[in-house]
């Protein structure tokens, strides 16, 4: 065997082994990817199942009369004050600005495209029943859901939840139920308020753009109002309110005694709230289509 042939055979052997290793690495990589995807789906499924199970527990507690002790009622009143009343000046200001802008632009576009006869349907079917809940959900999520998420996580880290348990105060009755009822009530109230502001600015812009009297505006609105749509919108608001408070609470309760766990559970909670809002919106649109 010459030196060259040894080299050649060694080189070939090396090439073969490289190919083999590469092939195995490829397989390993793809298996790892599949495992990763499977793990993520499993984790998401488990989390979704956990959220549904937690929702069931909360609903059961909400329907129990015993849940509403004096302390729970006090928390509920305080929460409604923090979420629905304290926000009012800012909410009204933003609502007036946003609704005027929106209604003004939409009416002008309808006029430009000669779609004046559809303006009632657009106002009621799209702006009032679809955009009002989204606007309210955004404000409540940004202001209250994030605060609830942090509050729960910090209470868990500071062992304050353990304090409540030590004094035999049920966390579900005292902390969870009033916050979730507040979410539902506040969502319905603020969304309705936004719709009212929107319709009021509609009076102004219908007069300016279409030269329409208040009576004609009112008649058009009443004729284009579908009560089933309004019912769906209100139910959707309540469901939004339920989940945008339930998810931050659930994630907040996952915090550990270390303060570093607080930002982790807060970001997780807020991402999941966003996903829940998307899912509920899609489901409500499907309900409308069906």
């Amino acid at each position: 065997m010459s030196i060259k042939s040894v080299f050649d055979s060694g080189y070939l052997k090396l090439l073969r082994s490289c190919a083999k290793i590469e092939f195995l690495t490829d397989m390993g990589c793809s298996m790892e990817w599949i495992e990763k995807i499977g793990r993520s789906i499993g984790k998401a499924g488990k989390s979704f199942g956990g959220t549904l199970a937690f929702s069931g527990k909360v609903l059961a507690r909400m329907l129990r009369r015993k849940t509403y002790s004096s302390a729970t009622r006090e928390v509920l009143v305080n929460q409604i004050y923090f979420t629905s009343v304290q926000i009012l000046p800012a909410f009204l200001l933003v609502s007036i600005l946003f609704s005027s802008l929106l209604v003004g632009i939409v009416f002008q576009v309808l006029k430009d495209f000669g779609l004046t006869e559809f303006f009632g349907h657009v106002l009621m079917g799209l702006i009032v029943t679809e955009l009002s809940p989204i606007f309210a959900v955004l404000l409540i999520t940004l202001r209250s859901a994030s605060a609830i998420n942090v509050e729960m996580a910090v209470m868990k880290s500071n062992r304050e939840l353990k304090t409540l348990e030590t004094f035999r105060i049920d966390l579900m009755n005292y902390l969870v139920v009033p916050r979730i009822i507040n979410g539902m009530v506040s969502m319905v109230l603020l969304s309705s308020l936004f719709a009212i502001v929107l319709m009021a600015s509609g009076v102004l812009f219908s007069g300016l753009i279409f030269d329409m009297s208040v009576d004609v505006y009112r008649n058009i609105l009443l004729n284009s109002t579908s009560f089933s749509d309004i019912f769906i919108a209100l139910v959707k608001c309540a469901i939004f309110g339920f989940f945008i408070t339930l998810i931050p609470i659930r994630f907040g309760l996952r915090a550990t005694s270390e303060l570093t766990s607080v930002p982790v559970v807060v970001s997780g909670g807020m991402v999941n709230v966003f996903l829940a809002v998307l899912i509920i919106e899609v489901l409500s649109l499907l309900t409308k289509l069906l």
């Binding site: 004096s70 006090e74 509050e151 209470m155 500071n158 353990k162 105060i169 005292y174």
Partner: peptide, 27 residues
Amino acid sequence: VDVPLLSNQDVIMNISLIKEYHENMSK
């Protein structure tokens, strides 16, 4: 020290909570 006062409530609320919850006493 392992059973602290609730930091998001004032002292009177921390204490009256026990009566309100266990005995349904009014605020």
